[in-house]
Amino acid sequence: MKDRRLVLLIAVAAVACSLAGWAEAKPWWMRGTDASESDFLPPDQAFRVTSRIDGDLLRVRWAIADGYYLYREKMAIQAESPDLVVSTASFPNGTTKTDPYLGTQQIFTQQVEATAAFSRSDYGAHPIQIKVTYQGCAEAGLCYPPITKVIFPTTGGPDTAGAAASAGVQAASPPAPEDSALPHRGATVAIVGGGLAFFLAGLLLRKGRHLASPV
């Protein structure tokens, strides 16, 4: 009898876990009407900013999703940590975009890297923190408000082989926003729950075994 209840419990737990996974996996048209996936990316997905220290230069790189762009004149790099002095950032030439309602602007698409010289008067007592500002839009016809982020540039890098600003960029991600882990919660529950169900099933099967004691 106990066995049956245990089996039932496992079955219920397993089905619940399956549903947890399914609820997250189902397509947008099967989700509740109160939540609809839109056609636009959240700003942190549309524009990904990373930075690193390269000698006495700060390199800040924006990776821009397809169909999105950043306005040159809305981009800036400033010192945030105490005793850090950052010179005016240098940007490459962007492309010119003329909008009858906003005039002519320089924009960046795909990716852009800005450099800014920096100096410190604290001999490294504080970790370097910078404040980056940027604002962009999607070609589809929508814009994001100006974004300001405080980030820690990573130190070191693979510059010795002349591969300027290459492999280090991916490791230089800013601290992940707090809510970035949230979409995976259902998936994690499903995985852990599934594993737990296996464990319980294993225990149950083991319970039924009677090992002959050595004579």
Partner: peptide
């Protein structure tokens, strides 16, 4: 019942990993 439970667990893991890989 054990078979159903195991199948359910497998489905849960599959759904979870599928979501994970999609994201």
């Amino acid at each position: 019942a054990v078979a159903v439970a195991v199948l359910g667990a497998l489905l849960g893991v599959w759904a979870g990993t599928r979501v994970h890989s999609n994201r």
